[in-house]
Amino acid sequence: MQICARATEAELTAALDVLKPRPEAVDVRPAEIGLVMLRGRIGGSGAPFNVGEATVTRAAVRLGTGETGYSYLLGRAKTRARLAAILEAAGQRPAYRRSIVQHLVRPVAERLANERRSMLDEAAATRVEFLTLVRGED
């Protein structure tokens, strides 16, 4: 589900398109946009407090073969949420699992890791060593 929540619509569509036979899904809960209240911790590690809300899209589907799939993801993206729910349900079927790992989980995980690495490397170039100057008073 973590991968499904971050995959783009194109990545989800591509992964679904290669599944043979293509899973048929009916909505258990049509994709819906709502809010989740985000929380922080006092002082970064203490008791929780409410920071503010975020938009979240969720969907739930059932495959013709009986599996139920859910998705919850940040933002307003009904198509993406429905696709994610279908793939989450399909992932529960051993027949689909290998294809989903190969065409969705691995490439998306790799893209996310590259993006993360590139972001951290850019930040690392701005790592600073401050020197304290000795003042000549004494």
Partner: peptide, 18 residues
């Protein structure tokens, strides 16, 4: 909009720092 719930508190100690 409807509210789906309250998130688990974010862990800023585990932040990917920029």
């Amino acid at each position: 909009l409807p509210r789906f719930g309250y998130a688990t508190p974010i862990e800023t100690g585990a932040m990917a720092i920029r």
